[in-house]
Nucleic acid binder design. Sequence first.
DNA 1: GTCTATAATTTGATAGAC
DNA 2: GTCTATCAAATTATAGAC
Lengths: 174, 174
Amino acid sequence: MPPPTTAISEKAAEIMDAAERRIRTSGYQGFSFREIAADVGVKSSSVHHHFPTKPALAAAVARRYTDRFEAALDKAKSAEDWRAVFRKALVQHGQMCLCGVLGAESGDLPPEVSAEARRFFTRNVQALSRLYGSPSAASRQTALRIMATLEGAMMLARTLDDPKVFDEATRNLG
Amino acid sequence: MPPPTTAISEKAAEIMDAAERRIRTSGYQGFSFREIAADVGVKSSSVHHHFPTKPALAAAVARRYTDRFEAALDKAKSAEDWRAVFRKALVQHGQMCLCGVLGAESGDLPPEVSAEARRFFTRNVQALSRLYGSPSAASRQTALRIMATLEGAMMLARTLDDPKVFDEATRNLG
DNA sequence: GTCTATAATTTGATAGAC
DNA sequence: GTCTATCAAATTATAGAC
């Protein structure tokens, strides 16, 4: 039995999959509707039917990415658990964090897209800091440091084209 | 008295300045010869006169960035000194690390450009690890962790549009 | 070294048929 | 929901005059 009244169609999900792959590889400026269309086997006008504009598509992809990321972190109880989730994102697909790429470009992004990148980090830093006691400057600092290290480690591993770099950079995280 | 036989002309340097600014804001895919030309007050064909292709310009900019970065780190004797150099790059111009942006996009960059990003991190991790004793797995791990934290902290501060985020994330670095 | 002019391609987006 | 056709703009790059 299919889920009742799905919010997005199957084709829209395919389009978002392709867009996520492209953005995580080349960034927001580095993907086009025509490429996405070719990836999923339709024409670019069909992509526009599902997502009116490029910012709308990118924002939807970032929103979904954040939702999934938070779901994967649902049971994370330690910095080591967080490390594992980031590691999987890097190693399983050999790709950057979507919001890490968007964040690097964030100086020149459509507002709806940079807002989603901001939301990803705001929420994750909040959740991470909860592992370090009640809200305080110290728990926030620790959370920011760990988040920075995880994101930086992904970028380094991708740039140096060596997943082991991530493991080395994130040893002794807590 | 001007320097004898300068390697690059003054106009070429101006072009590189504009390109660096644009890349650090929007990424490699996010800048164009016409924008750079307008920034320095010439036509795009004149930019091509100084730098034949877009990859050549970006690679030259990245090379110069790495040289300057290493010069600024010449007297750095501690992680705290490194922190100060990264902080200045972020705060003084309100911009990302050039090679951090390129690194995030590195999945789809012209080879000559990704090679320069790789070179930046290879050399800097090497130099940083020298602060932690003779070459070893431990000194390399520490250097990778610090480099990841500094780069990630710059990205977070830019995305959240708050320089204080960098300071918070890089407290207790060593 | 800079310009004008232009080529060839790609881009985001829309109109309208089916 | 997908297509064809098309548009206006932007892109990298080159040729050739001054």
